[in-house]
Amino acid sequence: MSDLTGTGTAVDPLTQTQAVKDMRRLDPSLRPAGDGGSLVHRSGRGKKLLVYLALVAFALVYIYPFVVQVSTSLKTNADAVAHPLAVVPDPFTTAAFQRLADTDFPLWFTNSVVVTVCVTIGRVFFNSLAGYALARLRFRGRDAVFTAILAVLAVPGIVLLIPKFLVLNYLGIYNTYPALFVPLLVDAAGVFIMKQFFESIPPSVEEAARIDGTGTFRTFWSIVLPMARPAVITLTILSFQGSWNELAHFIIATDDPRLFTLTRGVAQLTSGGLGSGNQYPISMAAALLMTIPTAVVFVVFQRYFTQGANAGAEKG
């Protein structure tokens, strides 16, 4: 199973299905004589209908909450409370977004963007460096380093809340910008993914470079890293998603409202930050605005998300 990790084609379920299809087309013995469908999957109409019904029902359960999110953000609070299931806002209003603009929301959004960009760049760079060293460079203690990183993977993140605060406090960077992103700059899982990928690249290319006298970093930076593009994109997406959605670390890294990120700020906003009464359109608008960047990245890079999920699977 190890060859599945993060590699460009092996993981992608679509490609695999295609391969299976091709195989079946080429080998006539595999093709059933009957209705033209596959032998195993020759399914009755009833079964097909049932599967479609189940799928549509589940799809509704999965999509409707997001529909509610969008439509409620454009409703008045009275309308939202009275008709929570209605898709069309009546009356239609963007008041929630205007109210949100008057809060610290824009500041949180900016903070989130800065932190996410820093974390993503840092992770991609440092994880690739370490992954490359562990995959390719021979140095004393390499196995020990790799074992240590594997051990780190086994530490459940949530038990680190208090410990991380202690160290930030001790270093005197609690309530500073670096406290938000420096502890997130490296993640053991990312190192693991990059190591696996670099091991799948034939070493001959670097060998040639080395004979030409290219330095180790140059070889890594201008020859190996460009070849690792799929893994780098996967890592970028995982890092983006991880830091954009992170909540627990931002809770313990600061209590200064000027340093709140989206997750922290919005969580605060809805637990009483808006004064009296439930303001559902505002909280839905906030939820929507923090979902949109994720959704855009998700739609554009969907294939890599899928790979990332399965690359994560390999580490377990």
Binding site: N245, A286, L288
Partner: peptide, 19 residues
């Protein structure tokens, strides 16, 4: 559709479910 909620912030999803 089934995978999308996994990539969305837990805060955003919590707000929607609260509602």
């Amino acid at each position: 559709a089934f995978y999308f909620p996994s990539v969305v912030s837990s805060v955003a999803i919590s707000l929607v479910f609260l509602f």
